[in-house]
Design a protein around this nucleic acid. Structure first.
Lengths: 217, 217
DNA sequence: GCCTTGTTTAACAACACTGTTAAATACGTC
DNA sequence: GACGTATTTAACAGTGTTGTTAAACAAGGC
């Protein structure tokens, strides 16, 4: 019975994933997971002793997914810098839109339990070295040449991630509020354009009137 | 004993507010509230029968605060439209920065319990009539005149609220991650400038290259 | 001195959820 | 057919939290 054995272990894990994505850690009950997996609730503890165990596996995986996507997407190509960044922001949006549950889970869990934020931080260390530092240099040299507006790399990344995550997470609510956006895909497509438009315009060289910059001291 | 009576009732309410702001609904225990208020835990139930009662009072008040601030701040002045909007966005930022607990609570509670979102919606109905509709007309006429880029009012408001809320809520985490922003007030000041810069540039008339617009069908 | 109201104490009922356990059952393998 | 592993059943212990209750106490107003 090895085949079925490994199967149900997987089935439980996937059921747990879906429950946690929908209701968060506190909101899901182990019995619900068992029900969704179609197994007895005693079997959960037989495989993964505790609820925490189960959750940590899921959460860890999601954090890794999130962190790696950032690193992968924002790691340079040969395009001009602005286009490179806008393109990356678009890919990032698509990635989040394909994993709305992940965004929700990360956001809510991390906001409710600060300790989880520290956990997430460590997954973003690669980002700091591999993406942020080289990006800052590139940004500065482009700004020096007058090809784009000056901006701090952390602020830029905040802008992109904030806009993208929020868009995906609050989409259902905005659509319930303003009924004139059609179906989900349509709204998300519009929102994607809006976000990229914002980023592109933010990066465009300063005209005379719009000269404002925020950089750390 | 009327004076002291009304006092402790208030004291309990304030203690509850602080606990809820810090830990959310699920995260706070009634005994913690009692402890913070310096009264016996039986007294909570004597005044406000249930935890839900207590929470709803707080939450209702916060939603109202949030909704009214939006309406007040974004209700027109005599400035040119773009300046009017940027100025309002700045005031909105300041309001959130002064009430970081409120932003956190609204965000987390509303994300975890969709029913609360519906509750929040009703508090934003005024906004729809009094702000969004007139704003859309003003935006369109300015865009027609070529004085600013075309934009949907809902998208614009989303942009502002998202950027401002996120900035305030994730500030402690970003500061823990990137250590080069100095103290909280300094970071928030920078972030405020960044947000206003984004909005201003988004609203600036389209130059030739950056021509992208998102409007509902 | 007595009544009312506010407050404390301490114990307890009710409930929901997590995790454990022992015995029974199913099933593939040898 | 015997054995071992996977799985179910069903009951239960433990825990944490909410909400209730009865009795006593404090203190001001009459």
């Amino acid at each position: 019975m090895e085949t079925t054995g490994r199967n149900t272990e997987q089935i439980i894990l996937e059921a747990a994933e879906q429950e946690f994505l929908l209701h968060g850690f506190e909101g899901t009950k182990t019995t619900d997971i068992a029900n969704r997996a179609g197994v007895n609730h005693a079997l959960l503890h037989y495989y993964y002793r505790t609820k925490e165990n189960l959750f940590n596996r899921i959460f860890e995986q999601k954090m890794q997914l999130f962190g790696c996507a950032l690193v992968d997407i924002f790691n340079g190509s040969t395009l001009p810098l602005v286009e490179q960044i806008v393109c990356a922001a678009g890919k990032h949006f698509d990635f989040l839109a394909d994993n709305p549950g992940m965004s929700r889970l990360l956001l809510t869990e991390v906001l409710c339990k600060p300790s989880r934020m520290e956990q997430l931080m460590t997954h973003l260390d690669k980002l700091k070295e591999e993406v942020l530092q080289p990006m800052q240099e590139a940004l500065d040299s482009e700004a020096d040449a007058g090809h784009m507006a000056r901006i701090d790399a952390v602020m830029l990344l905040m802008n992109i991630v904030q806009l993208n995550i929020c868009a995906v997470v609050i989409q259902p609510y905005v659509q319930a509020y303003a009924d004139n956006f059609g179906e989900r895909r349509h709204f998300l497509a519009l929102r994607r354009e809006e976000n990229l438009c914002i980023i592109r315009k933010r990066l465009a060289p300063d005209s005379e009137e719009t000269k404002t910059t925020a950089t750390p001291s």
